[in-house]
């Protein structure tokens, strides 16, 4: 069956990717590529995670920064309180992100369109305000973190984080791919096109949106969790920076949300451009480029890069029959 062949090809690709990443951490001496690569991987994870709710379901989440920041601070709080290892920090962040997704979803997913989007910004600001007033994790001033010793086979913490983020990317992509090819994906696509018609055709829209919001939230928080150790520092205004929201949204929409590969392409393209620009010009210019690209694409190429590559690319193309 072609379905099975697709699966084998996909997981073989994943294995090659992870082996390559691992080999790179063992061979390349210089730490810089890992610093930059980590950021690109993080953007891939964020964009793919965002597209589960924003792309498949069509609910534009401006609150990526809320989930990201919650991931960062779950890791920070846990690390400060118990010194828990990185894996535990990430798992805890995913759980908290999922719970937050559930709460946010219950509160906001009955709202349509722009109301939902504005509500997600509101959630982000409110959580950020609480963290700013939370002394234990340093309040508005932020908190310094001392990285623990690195684990074998890695010889530097950044290389390890790079590998960990690569695994998070794989998880995000695998989950997005699963949803896309399952009944859930079809239901989300239906409610995205027309929520009332979907309901009347038997789609449990609220439940599906909640599931999408929880999964998306868990993945975003998980992708954010290692950021504390990456920067060795966390403060509310960077952890809850709205630029995570623009990036995730822009990379997804620019890549195209009809297929999981879209956000991956968008994030690789824009993420690497950003890395180049912020080294060569300035970090403001890369936000400008992101904004302009976003506007150009939503106006001129509604289906994103994958729409340009393959006109009429369909959500279920290449998926389960």
């Amino acid at each position: 069956m072609s379905n099975r062949r697709h699966n084998i090809a996909f997981w073989a690709g994943v294995a090659v990717f992870l082996v390559a990443v691992l080999a790179m951490t063992q061979i390349v001496r210089n730490e810089y590529p890992f610093f930059a690569g980590y950021v690109i991987l993080q953007f891939i994870a964020l964009a793919v995670a965002w597209s589960i709710l924003g792309g498949y379901a069509g609910y534009v989440n401006f609150g990526t920064n809320a989930f990201f920041g919650v991931g960062v601070y779950t890791a920070v709080a846990l690390f400060k309180a118990t010194g828990a290892p990185l894996v535990v920090q990430i798992a805890a962040a995913a759980v908290v992100g999922m719970l937050l997704g559930f709460a946010v979803g219950l509160l906001t997913l009955r709202m349509r369109g722009i109301f939902f989007s504005i509500a997600t910004i509101a959630v982000a600001i409110i959580i950020e305000t609480f963290v700013m007033n939370w002394r234990f994790v340093g309040g508005a001033a932020g908190i310094q973190l001392q990285r623990p010793a690195v684990m074998a086979p890695f010889d530097s913490y950044v290389k390890m984080l790079f590998f960990v983020q690569a695994i998070l990317v794989v998880i995000a992509v695998a989950v997005a791919r699963y949803i896309q090819n399952s009944r859930i994906g079809r239901g989300l696509q239906a409610l995205r096109d027309d929520e009332l018609a979907a309901e009347c055709t038997g789609v449990p829209t609220l439940k599906l949106k909640l599931v999408a919001c929880m999964i998306s939230g868990a993945l975003i928080s998980a992708a954010g969790a290692p950021a504390a150790m990456y920067l060795q520092y966390a403060d509310p205004s960077s952890a809850f920076n709205l630029s995570y929201s623009v990036s995730a949204l822009a990379m997804s929409l620019i890549g195209g949300t009809a297929h999981w590969i879209g956000p991956v392409l968008g994030a690789i393209l824009l993420g690497s451009t950003q890395q180049l620009l912020s080294v060569t010009i300035s970090s403001e210019v890369n936000v400008l480029v992101l904004g302009i690209m976003l506007v150009l694409f939503v106006v001129g190429a509604p289906k994103g890069i994958i729409g340009l590559l393959r006109p009429r690319y369909r959500l279920r193309a290449g998926g389960k029959p």
Binding site: G54, G58, V60, F62, G113, I114, S117, V246, L249, A250, L253, E284, V285, V287, L288, L290, G291, I292, L294, V295, V298, V299, P302
Partner: peptide, 30 residues
């Protein structure tokens, strides 16, 4: 781009204005 064509105006319309907002912010900073 959005209202006239009708299709998918929601997501892209919101993203459009979000993008404009960011462009304005950055231009002011620059």
């Amino acid at each position: 781009t959005f209202e006239k064509r009708g299709t998918d105006a929601g997501v892209r319309g919101i993203a459009f204005f979000f993008g404009i907002a960011f462009i304005i912010e950055v231009l002011i900073i620059l």
